[in-house]
Design a protein around this nucleic acid. Structure first.
Lengths: 228, 228
DNA sequence: CGATGGATGTCGTGC
DNA sequence: GCACGACGTCCATCG
């Protein structure tokens, strides 16, 4: 078994007897067993067990992967994976692996776009100006729409939870701290109202109660095909 | 190429020309290309591209995986992945794949245990009673410690962020709504103070400011070896 | 480099 | 089945 041969292979898959030691943000040991070991050409590295989607051990792209004797050492910043190979049942170099990106629909961005395309459906008649990813000191708000008031909108693709309500609250608090500056920046009068909104296809009872208690509006928004 | 042969194989890896269509919580298309396709014996399924640790397409354990002709169909609840195989460069059945769990250190639970083992170090002299994962209407608090006051503690293994401060706030709000009931439940007098705490190895400036403004205590806690 | 939030997050747990 | 939170989350984006 000349494992070092794989130093020259940009991507490979092994099925091997191995144990794995990781040290970095945390520290872990994977006991000796039969695992699927993958190196990708971007310098990412994975050790997969028999079950579950995520790898047991892994390192992100940009890692330095070096094989010496029967040990694969993977390093990235202050993290290290040491994989000791005791026996290799299968080893296949991977050539021509495609790097196509997946095209995806039903994302949060799609729901945000729906509100921007037709704000009157969700907020009533008016002339609206939209600001996506509007920055605050507590992070960017998905969508700020202005008409006679300022709508601060957090959009979710899944059912809205109480956690999401507090995410919005965080933005509203940050906004309130510098409200006059923000209103000026949005070309709105100093006295105009600020209305917090949560938008999404569904909302939990806990979150809905929190909305009622805190003057937050829930805006039901569906993905295009769900309407049909 | 008799792909249907793999219907009888509990786990396999293919490197193949394929395209992938997913529909379920979202909807996605992965264009034709060379991908690594993995089926595990727990019924999980992955399609890996040339880059990055996570799979491009995937389905959790318990999925129903069936091959007919050159199409692999994976189903789980209302989700489906349809993988069309145009050519298979490599196909290896995986036998004896180990299902060992990883043993991990430097988890949140470890930090929580450190506080429970020696609360006086973090909160000062006193006699403490600990409640892990104390339930509230907004979710469980990592740790509630009682002495003469009630400490409501959210523990983080990483640097504490403003988001974490609001997680604690959420618990404190829920606690406050039924404070008398909670105090009785904890055998504490009705008038006793409730102190929110964030515990962890580090805290962001934003989060620390939020603590100061809201009477929340930050408890520095390190992992054992970092102290050395 | 840190900070922040999305994700088909996945997975475990408790109800 | 739903709700919730941890995770070495990973990853893109922005300052």
């Amino acid at each position: 078994m000349d494992l070092e041969y794989y130093n020259n292979i940009p991507a490979f898959v092994l099925f091997a007897v191995a144990d794995v030691h990781y040290d970095g943000r945390a520290s872990s040991i994977l006991e000796r067993g039969n695992y699927l070991i993958i190196k990708k050409e971007d310098g990412s590295f994975m050790v997969h067990g028999a079950c579950h989607v995520p790898a047991l051990n892994y390192m992100s792209s940009g890692s330095i992967i070096h094989i010496k004797g029967n040990i694969i050492t993977v390093t990235r910043r202050s993290e290290t994976i040491r994989t000791k190979i005791y026996n290799c049942y299968e080893g296949i170099p991977i050539l021509g692996w495609s790097d196509h990106k997946i095209k995806i629909r039903k994302t949060e961005a799609e729901l945000t776009a729906r509100i921007i395309d037709d704000p009157e459906t969700y907020l009533g008649p008016g002339i609206y100006t939209a600001h996506r990813e509007y920055p605050t000191l507590a992070g960017p708000v998905d969508l700020v729409l202005t008409s006679t008031v300022i709508y601060t909108i957090e959009v979710k693709r899944k059912r809205i939870s109480l956690k999401d309500s507090y995410q919005l609250q965080r933005y509203l608090d940050a906004f309130a701290k510098v409200a006059l500056v923000e209103k000026k920046h949005l070309n709105m009068p100093p006295g105009c109202e600020i209305v917090g909104c949560l938008a999404g296809p569904d909302i939990s009872i806990n979150a809905l109660n929190h909305c009622r208690e805190n003057g937050i509006r829930y805006l039901p928004v569906q993905f295009e095909e769900e309407v049909l």
